[in-house]
Design a protein around this nucleic acid. Structure first.
Ligand SMILES: [Mn+2]
Ligand SMILES: [Mn+2]
Ligand SMILES: [Mn+2]
Ligand SMILES: [Mn+2]
Lengths: 224, 224
DNA sequence: AATCGAATTTAGTGTAGCCTAATTAAGAAA
DNA sequence: TTTCTTAATTAGGCTACACTAAATTCGATT
């Protein structure tokens, strides 16, 4: 089809994809913040992405953007690369889960389809990455997320961890220490409205812990 | 030290390094041809590389270039990446030896030092890549080549294959088919001056083969 | 020593993507 | 409805690296 996609363009599309998972559209400032560029640069790029044939984004001045099917296809391709790479780094090269994100964020743009295919095969076509994010299939189908932030649970509710935000290594190390990794079971014991802390009993851990929303907002769970 | 090296600069330095292995300096046209850019572009880049602090190349107008110690250090770093990656692709991901060069040529610029270190360890610090090229050590020491083209052997001489030029996948497949891979023993039976063909008996192969210089120039051997 | 062809360099442009500063539009508050 | 704040866009420039076309240098040959 095409082949003139720069790493820059791929990063813009991936970023827009991530934002539109949680909101209906991505705004100029969000994208700028996330990519570490100025809003002016984003506006320029959005106009360009909207002007390609086929267009990669749907863009209306002052209203934000969303991906066209063509743009989403590319974004999912990159997301698949990213998450397969993370899994590969952990499982085959012995990386820790807090070390993989930045490495994958670069490599996702540079591996071939052959490389993608070989690691997928070597890993046995994993469904999720080390942080619990679903991996798009070869055909770029991806499971819908139906988890909720740990923070939204009430005292007495039990749950199981689904995924953890992956961008902050510090957070990931802390979460691993706590044993709150994907698959871990827990029960909310108390909620203190003042400081918005949760008291949590984690299965297999001897003592319960108090967690602020700096953490509970970054962990996504399913209630049971 | 620095960290502002583009992939483009790394490729120029690596190319100059390769040429200066076989000649005392690299010329503008050679570099242009090898990188697929125009000579005018090369001139521009050479001036730039000579003007950095510290300078990466020694450049005199109309006389070609060679690397400074600083430039060579970077070139060797990239060569180490390249050759470790090739080994990794073959040994851990099941690539064939004719498939790895182009993949490694891209990835060499994008893996981290941590990635380099992990694959080196996983592979047991290999000395040579799949094509028989020596891999620089962590400290960037590299064995001198002391092999000669197969073409230069006389009838009656025996030898062992050291390395094979890696850039042409077609050639590599043919060479693998013949069993003339690094480590293979052989004897030169005949030389026909007219067409510059060699008749070769390869250890372990049932029949002897006639090879033109399209092949014998690309295989490097040690006589025994 | 003069000439010629190949190699190289210079001069002038183009594209991608970023920036700052100045301007405009949208939406909340008055 | 008008005003104000914030978000977004425009205008104008900059750097990296490529290209084409025109000039120059080298070194070989007369
Ligand atoms: Mn892919
Ligand atoms: Mn992840
Ligand atoms: Mn390295
Ligand atoms: Mn090789």
């Amino acid at each position: 089809m095409r082949e003139n996609l720069t790493q820059t363009i791929e990063d813009y599309l991936k970023t827009i994809y991530q934002f539109t998972l949680e909101h209906q559209r991505a705004t100029t400032n969000q994208i700028a913040e996330s990519l570490g560029v100025t809003p002016a640069s984003v506006t320029g790029m959005l106009k360009k992405l909207a002007a390609t044939e086929p267009p990669l984004v749907e863009y209306k001045k002052h209203y934000g953007v969303l991906l066209t099917p063509a743009g989403e296809k590319i974004a999912l391709e990159i997301v698949r690369h990213h998450r397969l790479l993370e899994m590969f780094l952990v499982q085959m090269l012995g990386y820790e889960w807090d070390e993989v994100h930045s490495e994958a964020d670069r490599l996702e743009h540079h591996i071939s389809e052959a490389f993608e295919e070989r690691i997928a095969e070597a890993l046995g076509d994993p469904q999720r990455d080390p942080h619990g994010n679903p991996i798009p299939t070869r055909e770029l189908a991806i499971q819908k997320l139906n988890d909720i932030p740990l923070r939204s649970l009430q005292p007495g509710q039990k749950g199981v961890v689904q995924r953890v935000r992956e961008t902050d290594p510090e957070l990931l190390r802390r979460v691993a220490e706590l044993g709150l990794v994907p698959g871990a079971h827990f029960e909310v014991l108390e909620y203190s409205p003042l400081d918005e802390n949760l008291l949590l009993a984690i299965a297999g851990q001897p003592v319960s812990v108090v967690l602020g929303k700096g953490i509970t907002n970054q962990i996504f769970v399913k209630a049971i």
